[in-house]
Structure formats: structure tokens, C-alpha cells
Design a protein around this nucleic acid. Structure first.
Lengths: 339, 339
DNA sequence: CTATTGACATTAAACGTTTAAGTTGATAGA
DNA sequence: TCTATCAACTTAAACGTTTAATGTCAATAG
């Protein structure tokens, strides 16, 4: 049982392999008569021919593959997609790519090297990197001259397409919302605050809001561990152990907001009665907890759609660097109380 | 700036391309002197050579790619990964594959054709299909003679490796747990019940338990829509609209259990005081809702690990068809009350 | 009646690897 | 001394496409 190749098709249709190739790829610059075309297509169908993409990309240097790189922000923590934020993003990217005839090559590298490798070795036609802190590998990517889209990544001088949100504004919005509800003692719950990271920006927004309101930024109100349900639960324990002086918490991700609510609930602290919580993302989780999470809404799906669009534009010749900052809004639910 | 090829490396090291290839692939059947090997490796490093995988797989017929197919159970519903179950599974698969030097090619096809295409066209070295109902394409896959693992899939005569759980038993366990807590009016909340599908098996288990207890299976206690938070919310509305005669609900997925709890809560029905809920999966969501969800635990990560192991075994020559049924257990939390 | 054009199709050379088969020179066994 | 074996490489033919360059023929223009 031999693989059927373009040669077999050519033979069956009584044409050259070149003609078959032109028909299959429907090349507009080539003139093929309708009859020949039909004959070829018939042969393709009858022989059940499917082109070999390795051969095709070897010659054409196109793989119809888009690399999606979701670095492990926390080494050793392999289960990044447990956070539904990434699931939603992935879904959206996969879906958009598929409509354009591209497949997604997934990579959650534990070290930077692997994404440069994936790009060069696999020859992806484009690459989407989410949440990478600026690092040396990012520069090296440039030499590959393939379209690169950075999602939720801050770099000093972006040479690549970027899509994201104004995280600093988001942090400010969340905090100001809490302030507007009368809160003065507002904690900040997040993963590690890394220079240029998303969390850092949201923290700046948090500080902006407090400063504008003439309030101090208190170290004892800062809970920065990891972006996970578990850490948020732990933070809840710390909070009550310290006497719980805060009346509200800005959690920089819904997972954390939900974890906090759960943790507090276990300790007999009621949300929003005893303490208010605002989240960030407005993904599936925000609606799932009880009380439902008041949060900063961002359009996760749109991030993916935009990223793929930027890549497609580049592939089809657009040369200018594109940038998209998606809007944010406060979604009021039940986890914040006016005091 | 030309791509550096194996030829350049060969030249730099003063050897033939064959030698370079042998060194790079560390082939145990070839004898290369340590000196030559070192010289080649040095050239590789200096030239920053990365092999072209298209060329490599064209010749060797290996792609180091594993296709992961997660069919859209509900057409048009593109966001499969929003259900954290899939996120967890994906994480585990990606992680296990990467350790073996494989990458994941993702596909969430809207029609069956695409996964046979992905397998043939892209020439993946193995394919993992999750939750596919038996269909014609599955048979066609067989002709490709690559390892196939079916996760959570029931087929009459499995020619492929399978990994899953005993869904019927799971359904029975859940229902019996509720029975043991004194419940007699137990509703069944799920997605569509399709012949041979996972949900169908769980439904059988549900019926088994009721019948063993001498209780009838009531049509009005059946809520079968789609596996989504939204549908579960809607089911909650239907339930109360009908007067809420049931005292407990078996939700066949945590997402649905959580959605139900949320929906009921919005309507002033308390869980577990007014109605008890048991879920299925014990993923991240179960711990996130309030009250925390009593549920049937399954080891999602282990499913992925096992699937990759089966593929690796096949690739390295194992010929026997492997099968793994992972254990289940009841995790007691707060969503079920004794009556 | 020849030259030009255009439509339609073919030829053949890549693309960058892998690998079966061969070469070479040295060592060992008979 | 002659053959066999072996380590250490090399040669060169694939693998299955794509695509620039070219060819053929009929229709049209000059």
C-alpha cells in the first residue's frame, strides 16, 4: 500500500505533475483549462490524494503552521491551561487560524530557547507569543523574518505586532471602582510583580488610583505569590491571620478572585459583606462563583482574532507594524459592597 | 542572509553531510569517532545550525508531531477549551509530549474530514482523539498505520489504544452516593445523550442505580442540553419553573454542576439546603464554587500522560493494543446534604 | 503570409535532509 | 601472505513537492 503522490495523480489524469500542482493550489497566475482542471480533480478524488505537506513546505517554504507559545510563567508548574483565560485565548486563536487554513503548533516551553527553535526548525509561518517578558530570545526571533505577534507583552521598543490591553488603566479602573464604593483599605492580590510584566502595570494603576485619592500604598496590603487558585486561598488565610484590616481586594485575575472568595468563605469571612473583591478578565469563572465576581472585563476572544489577523495581514504582504489595545470595562456583579 | 544548511556544517567541519546527519541524530548504529563528532558539533554551534524539519520529515517520514483532535461536540460552538477539563487535559498532553521531543498539533475540526486530513497531510507520528463518537473517519484512520489513542471514546471493537474511565460506573457511583444520602428524587443534568457517548454511559449508570434501588427513571427529571455553564443555568430555571420536585441532581460535568448551583442561587434556591448537587470531573472548578462541589473524581492529567505513553510505546515498536481505565472516586465537599 | 500574442501545458531543477550501499585503510585470524 | 572483519567515513539516490523557464499551437494582427 504505497502512498499516492502527485505523480500518480498526474499519470491518472494524463497531465504533468506541474499541472496537478497548479490545479490543486488554484494558482490565479496560471492558466489551466476547465476540462483539464476537472480531470485532475477527478483523479485526486478517485485516488484519494492528499498532498504531502513536508515536501510542499520544503520547496515552498510555507508550512501553514502558526506557532503558539505560552511560556510557563512559573517554572515547574506545567498546567498553564488550567487557567481558563488561556483556554479561551487558545480556542479563539485555533478557531481563527483554522478558518484561514492554518494549524496551531503548540508550545509551552520551559526555557526560552525552545520557541526560537520551534520557529526555525519547524518553520512556522508566524508566531504568537503570549505573556513573554522581554528577553534575549525575543530579539533573536527578529532575524527569522516571520510575522510575530506579542499578546499581553510589554517591550520597550516593539518591533513586532502587539495586541493587549491597557493594564495600567485596568488596574486603575478596578481600584477606582473600589474607591468609589467607599473603600479605603484596598489590598492587591497578584502573581509576582515582574518589571515590564502585565501584573506590574496593573500594580501601577493600583498605585495611581490610591495616590490620586491621597491614600498610601501599604506593604501589608500586598499579596503577591502566583497566579493560581491555590495561592489566592493561601492569601485569604494570611489576610485573616493578620486581622483582615482591608475592606476590599483587587485580584489581578479572576482565578485569584475566585480563590480568594473561596478561601475567605472557608474561614467564615463573607464576600461582599465583610470584604469586597474585584477581579480581572471576566472569563468563564467570574460568573461561576458565588457571589458572582465583579471584575474588569476584557475581550479575550478578540485578542486571539486580532493576533491571527495581524499575522495574516503580514503574510499577505502588509509591512507596517500593527498594534491593538482592546478596551476594558467594569462589570458589576455581587462581590463588591458599598460602605 | 541564507539559511544555514547541513551542507554548510559539513563543509565547516570538513566532513560529508551524512556524517553530520549521523552526529546530529546520535545514531547508535553508526560509528563516528569522538573527534569528528566534536568537530561537527562545534560547527553546528558556531554556525547556529538548526535542521530543517520539513526536509527531514520528507525523507525520514517522521515529523515529531502528535496531532491532538478535540472535536467540537456542538457545531458552531467554537470555544471548547473554555471548559477547564480540556485545558487540563491539553496541558498534560503537551507537557508529556514535550518531554519526549514531540510537539502538539492542535485541531478542533468542525467536520470529521479534517482529522484524517491532519493525520495524512501533516504526517503526524501519532494522533490523540478525545471524545469522538464512533464514525466513518475513525475507520479510515486505521489505514494510516500510525498509533492512535482514543480518549473517552467508546467504540464497539476498539482497534486503537484507549484511555478513559468507566463512565457507567461513574454514573452509578454518583447516583448511589445521592441515594445513600437519602435522596429519592434525583435529576440527571447533561449534554446530549448520544449512543455510545460518554454521557450515555453515565446515564446508564444513573439508571442502574435507580433501578437497583427500585426507583423509576422519570422523564421530567432529565435535563439534557449541552455541556455548558449556560445550559445548566437554564436548567435551573426550568427546574424551579416546574416546581422543583427533585431533591438532588447528578450533573455529568463540573461545569454544569457549577452552572446549576449558580442558576439556582440566583433564583433563591439554596444548595445544598434546598437541593443537592453532585458533579463529575473534579477539575479546578469543583473547588471554585460556593458551596464547593461534591463530585466524582477522575485523574485528568493521568489521561494525557497515559495517552502519550501509549503513543511512544507504539512508536518504539510495541505492537499490542493498550487500554487503560482509570479509577474513579467520590470526593465529598459541601454540595450534597443528607435528608 | 509572417509575426505576435495568449492560452495551455510541460520540463527539469531545486528544496535540505536521510540512508542504503560502498570505500578505505587498519587490524586480526588462518 | 591472504582474506575477513571492522571502524570511520563518503557517495549519491531518493523523499514529494513547487516553480522558473520553456514549448506548442491556434488565433489574431499587421
Amino acid at each position: 500500500m504505497k502512498r499516492v503522490s502527485i505523480k500518480d495523480v498526474a499519470e491518472a489524469a494524463g497531465v504533468s505533475t506541474a499541472t496537478v500542482s497548479y490545479v490543486i493550489n488554484a494558482r490565479p497566475d496560471q492558466t489551466i483549462s476547465p476540462e483539464t482542471s476537472a480531470r485532475v480533480l477527478k483523479a485526486v478524488r478517485e485516488l484519494n490524494y492528499i498532498p504531502n505537506s513536508a515536501a510542499s513546505s520544503l520547496k515552498s517554504k510555507k508550512t501553514n503552521l502558526i506557532g503558539l507559545v505560552i511560556p510557563q510563567t512559573e517554572p515547574g508548574k506545567e498546567f498553564m491551561f488550567s487557567n481558563p483565560f488561556y483556554g479561551d485565548l487558545l480556542s479563539s486563536i485555533e478557531y481563527s487560524a483554522r478558518r484561514e487554513g492554518y494549524h496551531i503548533l503548540l508550545s509551552a516551553p520551559d526555557n526560552g530557547q525552545s520557541y526560537i527553535t520551534i520557529a526555525r526548525n519547524r518553520g512556522v509561518d508566524g508566531i504568537i507569543i503570549v505573556g513573554a517578558y522581554p528577553n534575549e530570545w525575543l530579539d533573536e526571533l527578529h532575524s527569522l523574518s516571520i510575522p510575530v505577534v506579542l499578546i499581553d507583552t510589554y517591550v520597550k521598543d516593539p518591533v513586532y505586532h502587539t495586541v493587549g490591553i491597557d493594564d495600567r488603566l485596568g488596574g486603575r479602573m478596578a481600584t477606582e471602582y473600589l474607591l468609589s464604593r467607599g473603600h479605603r483599605d484596598i489590598a492587591f492580590l497578584s502573581g509576582q510583580i515582574e518589571e515590564h510584566g502585565v501584573v506590574h502595570k496593573r500594580f501601577q494603576g493600583y498605585k495611581d488610583a490610591l495616590e490620586s485619592a491621597g491614600l498610601p500604598v501599604r506593604d501589608e496590603y500586598l499579596y503577591t505569590g502566583s497566579i493560581s487558585f491555590e495561592y489566592a486561598e493561601q492569601a485569604a488565610r494570611e489576610m485573616v491571620a493578620k486581622g483582615c484590616r482591608e475592606t476590599a481586594v483587587f485580584a489581578t485575575a479572576d482565578v485569584m478572585g475566585v480563590g480568594l472568595i473561596g478561601g475567605l468563605h472557608n474561614l467564615g469571612v463573607r464576600v461582599p459583606d465583610d470584604i469586597s473583591v474585584i477581579g480581572f478578565d471576566d472569563g468563564i469563572l467570574a460568573k461561576m462563583c458565588n457571589p458572582r465576581l465583579t471584575t474588569i472585563h476584557q475581550d479575550i476572544a478578540e485578542k486571539g482574532v486580532t493576533a491571527i489577523r495581524f499575522i495574516m495581514d503580514s503574510i499577505s504582504g502588509a509591512t507596517d507594524k500593527q498594534e491593538k489595545i482592546l478596551p476594558l470595562s467594569v462589570v458589576e456583579r455581587q462581590s463588591v459592597r458599598r460602605i
